[in-house]
Write a protein that binds this DNA or RNA. Structure first.
Lengths: 336, 336
DNA sequence: CTGTTAGCGCTTTCAC
DNA sequence: GTGAAAGCGCTAACAG
């Protein structure tokens, strides 16, 4: 058994209340007794029982982070951002993921329940009706990352996929002079990929470019699907001049496909990605992509959540969009 | 306020004790009352207060994971492994890192204290005297990842750096026929890098190779230091035939340096790494490296820790080494 | 300034 | 089978 304030109280010949006060820096404790108590506590290697404290204060100092998976850079960065802010405010972060196995995040949502954490940040690509229901019932503050604003009653934080995608497409057209621009989409049901797709088509239309159907291929955000999609594009009678992949992982697949066709980036075909993952800079040639400040998403989410936890449900729900920016490297080049 | 067993008890016209029993599957509750209670609980969306339960059962179902940093693949994988095992046993994992800022992991160690978590897994590259002291005093089970067995009284899990490094060096010599083999070391005080270095030198000696001093350069496990070290090696009058970098990140730096010298891998110079990070396969040419089953380290650590938590401090401390394996790709080639 | 006391929500004897 | 009651370690009035 760990040591408790009761034992300290005995050793110090005071009541447990005084010990509690001294430990909590309450001003009205004679400094001599305070010092005595603190000394004993240190000596005994005392650590307060967080659970007991939480029980009475109804304040656990823990927030939950729900992730669909624990793999890849995206997750790490989100977590890092969340934890950094949470930690600096004295909160701990518990992560729960579906681990691929088990019933999905829904179980976890329920599991983390209303009693363990003081708030939750939820990152789920697709929000089912069941999850919506759980969210609606929640009695603790919630933040949703990256979802389309399907649920207007909770705060959300997301990246401005549309803007990033529009920007990139515009850059390919206006600055580099590309005309034949293909797009490899992400999963059809995924919000990110939908918005990125729309940014692409809108920019194409606005600049009077032809949005050929066979230049739009579906992928699933992983390397393999990017490779496949790229093969398809390279096999067309009329090849595009540049491929804009909806994320960097698929762009990596394109490097492989292009190589296997004996072609060169960017001379034979240009390539652009989206996400600016760590690896992007080490590909050869380096990948032109859209920078997504992932850890900022985590930081912002945590910030909004903690504010809610502190100030209650007073204000209206906020929907924050985080801007992206272009990262210009050598995988695309000016058309002459 | 969330709903409590008291309210359920009222609605069901029983005592809170009965509710508690019903909720905990205690056999001696009439099945009709049990059913009634369970129904009400479900209806009210009841979630037990984990803290109250923990307080009385002295059993928090939380383990702590202490990491020096939250960046990079290594961390993610460790966490993934730990959480997977922990979760499957009904435990939650709380991660704490030093966030670069603040006083180091020591603060965290102390902070997580003895009351919040039932056990801790600690990953720290260098173990200071102060940390050793804290570890010695700990009243909860601890697992140390990757440390030299400086502290024999606690369980440890680590990868067999020496074996992996020896294997790679042997492969370069015996299978590929390299004779002039350079090594870029990791940080001098880091246990991993020390063992990798020893694996290299031992293999070199055993095969009668010359361990030239100017072919051994210090790095610090990041891309930049690898690039620098590689430049140094390439500038030597007598260039090595192959560079064995103590980790993949430094190997990535080598790609850049080699390129800037107008040389080609593996024709002009061979390259080998250590870690087998995700990126390794997407470099061009693909990197020959040593595979480290990172998430296995996490899984094993969690397994050993949970066993300790369940069975107490009965058995002697265990020191588990996880083997590595070669990943043969195209960045090294047979000498003719 | 300090002690007494009443819980926080839950589990667990000990009675009935 | 079920209820009453004690208590896990701590905080927060309420008195002195």
């Amino acid at each position: 058994m760990a040591i408790t304030i009761k034992e300290i109280a005995e050793k110090a010949n005071v009541s447990i209340a005084t010990v509690s006060r001294a430990l909590n820096d309450n001003k009205k404790v004679k400094s001599s007794t305070r010092k005595a108590i603190l000394d004993i506590a240190k000596n005994l290697n005392y650590v307060p029982n967080a659970f007991a404290r939480s029980l009475v204060k109804n304040d656990t100092k823990i927030i939950g982070l729900i992730l669909p998976d624990l793999e890849g850079e995206f997750f790490t960065e989100i977590f890092r951002g969340v934890d950094e802010v949470a930690y600096s405010e004295g909160f701990h972060t518990i992560v729960a993921s579906s681990h691929g196995q088990r019933s999905i995040a829904e179980a976890i949502l329920n599991f983390m329940g209303e009693s363990f954490v003081q708030g939750m940040i939820i990152l789920i690509p697709v929000i089912s009706e069941q999850i919506k229901e759980i969210i609606r019932r929640s009695s603790i503050p919630l933040i949703i990352i990256n979802a389309r604003n399907e649920i207007n009653t909770v705060d959300s934080v997301g990246i401005d996929n549309y803007q990033g995608s529009y920007l990139m497409t515009e850059y390919l057209i206006k600055t580099l002079g590309y005309k034949k621009i293909a797009h490899i989409r992400g999963p059809l049901h995924n919000n990110d990929s939908l918005q990125r797709f729309k940014g692409y088509t809108d920019a194409m239309k606005n600049y009077g470019m032809e949005c050929r159907e066979d230049w739009i291929v579906n992928g699933s955000f992983n390397v393999f699907s990017g490779e496949q999609a790229c093969r398809r594009l390279l096999s067309l009678k009329e090849r595009p001049e540049v491929i804009f992949a909806a994320n960097d992982m698929m762009a990596i697949g394109c490097y492989r496909a292009v190589k296997s066709f004996g072609l060169t980036i960017p001379d034979d075909i240009g390539l652009a990605g989206f996400d600016d993952i760590f690896i992007a800079e080490f590909l050869s040639p380096r990948l032109t992509t859209v920078h997504v400040p992932i850890s900022d998403i985590g930081k912002t989410s945590a910030g909004v959540l903690l504010e809610r936890i502190k100030n209650g449900n007073g204000r209206d729900s906020r929907h924050i969009k985080i801007s992206t920016g272009l990262v210009i490297k050598e995988s695309c080049r000016k058309r002459v």
